[in-house]
């Protein structure tokens, strides 16, 4: 449980503040936790129930005879493995490309001063605000022209474009935080420009790289709309589309299977979040101070 302990890190310092653990606070906290965790609990609960227990007049709060049948059914669903593979390819491509393009652009925007830099920063901010659903139509048409519809590369490009403004912004922040003297020290130590980048600057931007990869991973892994619109059939879809297809009229009543699918699909993200939660919270506090 080391990750959970790590979470308390921001509080380890001296902090007296309001009294802790009053009965009212504790009651509210328990109540809130119960309500908020309930949907997830219910998802897991249903996933382990045999069909006969899922559909009962009085809901069962624990499966009486837990079973893995639902997971079996979900995984054996047509195209699960294919769509999983598609998801992995697209997610991997997105993460790699977002980091690579992002880190170069961020280096340019933080370590150099040139004309048009400010304009680029504002454009990045504006683009970040654009709704994906508004860009869906024209991107669809542009990709149609370029023959990128129904290709991994097209889908990856679409996700990278979604992620890039954020990742450039975040990594640029980390670049700016590096004192110029460190770069100068490296130059005096004899490092070439490339060595300064790869051995000094990039390692110091690592937290920004992590933030970017999280964001890229989640964007690509979770997206339903773009994958559904850009890819042509089940053999090309990614996992969210696979999951959503559970609720078609044909399979609409197989709630056990749906919930098992949801568990499988959510699991990597949840595990990921729990692993990085320390960075998550500290990253946010950094952002909070700046905001």
């Amino acid at each position: 449980m080391s990750t959970i302990q790590a979470m308390s890190a921001p509080l380890r310092g001296r902090r007296v503040g309001p009294p802790k653990g009053g009965p009212l606070s504790n009651t509210l906290a328990i109540l809130f936790s119960l309500v908020w965790i309930f949907p997830i609990y219910w998802m897991v609960n249903t996933a382990f129930k045999p069909r006969s227990e899922a559909l009962t007049e009085t809901p069962l709060f624990l499966p009486e005879s837990p079973t893995l049948d639902n997971f079996d059914a979900a995984i054996n669903q047509t195209s699960f493995l294919v769509d999983l593979r598609n998801s992995l390819i697209v997610v991997g491509g997105t993460v790699l490309l977002a980091i690579l393009l992002g880190i170069f652009a961020a280096a340019a925007l933080s370590r150099f001063r040139f004309r048009g830099r400010r304009t680029i920063m504002v454009v990045i901010l504006v683009v970040q605000m654009l709704p994906a659903s508004a860009l869906l139509i024209p991107t669809f048409m542009v990709f149609n022209e370029l023959g990128l519809l129904g290709t991994y590369f097209g889908l990856i490009l679409a996700y990278v474009a979604l992620v890039l403004p954020f990742s450039v912004w975040v990594m640029r922040g980390f670049f700016i935080a590096i004192p110029v003297e460190i770069e100068e020290a490296a130059r005096i130590d004899g490092a070439s420009t490339w060595q300064v980048l790869t051995r000094i600057l990039f390692p110091l931007v690592a937290p920004g790289v992590i933030a970017t990869s999280i964001f890229a991973f989640i964007t690509a892994w979770n997206d339903y709309l773009i994958a559904y619109t850009f890819m042509k059939d089940q053999s090309q879809y990614t996992l969210p589309v696979w999951l959503a297809s559970f609720s078609t009229p044909l399979t609409g009543t197989d709630f056990g299977g749906q919930m098992a699918g949801s568990v499988i699909f959510s699991l990597p993200v949840v595990v990921f979040f729990l692993l990085i939660q320390r960075k998550l919270v500290s990253g946010m506090s950094a952002g909070a101070v700046k905001g």
Partner: peptide
């Protein structure tokens, strides 16, 4: 505090497609 934080992180991590089905 840890309990509440973990609950928050679980909910935050849930993909929208999955939570919509739930």
């Amino acid at each position: 505090r840890q309990v509440v934080t973990v609950v928050l992180i679980f909910v935050w991590a849930m993909p929208t497609v999955a939570s919509s089905l739930v």
